[in-house]
Simulated assay, not measured.
Amino acid sequence: MNEAIPPKSAAAETKACCAAVYGSDVMPLLLGGSYHPGGLALTRRLAEQLRLCRGDRVLDVATGRGTSALLLAGEYHADVTGVDLSPANIALASDAARTTGLVDQTRFLLGDADRLPVENAGFDAVMCECAFCTFPSKPTAAAELARVLRPGGLLGIADVTAEPTALPPELSGLSGWIACLGGARPLPEYTDLLTAAGLTVTHTERHDASITAMLDQVEARLALVRMTARDQAEALGVDFDRAPAVLAAARTAIGDGVLGYALLTARKPE
């Protein structure tokens, strides 16, 4: 599969946009504590597929405010490193680790999925939730995820899936990047990307209903955000007047099978 790599300036713009959006205080108002469909229930499902054990070294790529990383450390007793593009998220995740008493099991690093700031083959498992679709160069990111896994280690991805050419116009453009849609691909393309990086895909499963549930949550919270953080939200590209049409288009796309959410795991060969 040939994936076009965006020009360097476009890739940098996309990364800066993602860091600004997901480091903003508006996101927890819209999405709650977990910035991905399925919430912590789906994080636990992913952890089960990764067969996490006490003491496993886990890398959480695009960790956000550390919600999933802290869950893995607290419930599965893993040793977790979180990496994120946003300095604000790294600071908040580190504070949360201290507050929850998990500072010895977690650390949070500022970093880019294209150049993860960790050693080769240093992790038993790598997890990436609702972020792989936003990476401008997915082949580069896939190669990095494979690089940091030990032989026999497992990668778990939960992400938006989409048929890009069939998405309605309401979900395209910059607003699509913010909604994790602009770079989303069909599930078979994700498996091809991981295979090309030298990994063996071992399991896939659909969770399309989790996107519908998140849309319902966003719709319910929009009025609150409009009252309490309108200027911040609009600065990030939220158009409150267009929001109902965008949400309706997303629901239609889910019903048509154009938009969805999936979980997949892959193993690095011994």
Results as ranks from 00 to 15, higher is better:
Asn2Ser: 13
Ala4Leu: 10
Ile5His: 08
Ile5Asp: 09
Pro6Lys: 07
Pro7Leu: 13
Pro7Phe: 12
Pro7Tyr: 09
Ala12His: 02
Glu13Ala: 06
Thr14Val: 08
Lys15Met: 04
Ala16Asp: 04
Ala16Asn: 01
Cys18Phe: 05
Ala20Asn: 09
Tyr22Trp: 09
Gly23Met: 10
Gly23Cys: 11
Asp25Trp: 07
Asp25Ser: 12
Met27Ser: 08
Pro28Ala: 09
Leu30Cys: 06
Gly32Glu: 12
Gly38Arg: 00
Leu40Trp: 11
Ala41Thr: 15
Ala41Arg: 15
Leu42His: 04
Leu42Trp: 00
Thr43Arg: 15
Leu46Glu: 01
Leu46Tyr: 01
Leu46Pro: 01
Arg51Val: 11
Arg51Phe: 07
Cys53Pro: 01
Asp56His: 04
Arg57Ser: 06
Val58Trp: 03
Val58Asp: 00
Val61His: 01
Thr63Val: 05
Gly64Met: 00
Ala69Gly: 04
Leu70Ser: 15
Leu71His: 14
Glu75Ser: 11
Val80Gly: 00
Ala88Ile: 15
Asn89Gly: 08
Ile90His: 05
Ala96Phe: 03
Thr99Phe: 11
Asp104Glu: 11
Asp104Tyr: 12
Asp104Gly: 14
Gln105Met: 08
Arg107Ala: 03
Arg107Asp: 03
Leu109Gln: 05
Asp112Met: 09
Ala113Gly: 06
Pro117Asn: 08
Val118Tyr: 01
Glu119Ile: 14
Asp124His: 12
Thr134Asp: 06
Ser137Glu: 07
Glu144Cys: 08
Arg150His: 09
Ile157Thr: 00
Ile157Ser: 03
Ala162Val: 05
Ala162Met: 04
Pro169Cys: 08
Ser172His: 03
Gly173Ile: 10
Gly173Met: 07
Ser175Met: 06
Ser175Cys: 09
Ile178Gln: 06
Arg185Ile: 08
Pro186Thr: 10
Leu187Trp: 03
Tyr190Arg: 05
Asp192Gln: 14
Leu193Gly: 03
Leu193Pro: 02
Leu194Cys: 08
Ser210Thr: 03
Ile211Asp: 06
Ile211Cys: 10
Met214Ile: 15
Met214Tyr: 13
Gln217Asp: 10
Arg221Cys: 13
Leu224Thr: 15
Thr228Glu: 14
Ala229Asn: 12
Ala229Met: 11
Arg230Asp: 09
Arg230Ile: 11
Asp231Thr: 11
Gln232Tyr: 10
Leu236Lys: 08
Phe240Trp: 09
Asp241Cys: 14
Ala243Trp: 06
Ala243Asp: 04
Pro244Ile: 15
Ala249Gly: 01
Thr252Tyr: 05
Ala253Lys: 02
Ile254Ser: 15
Gly255Pro: 13
Gly255Tyr: 12
Gly257Ser: 14
Val258Lys: 03
Val258Met: 05
Tyr261Gln: 06
Tyr261Thr: 09
Leu264Asp: 01
Lys268Arg: 10
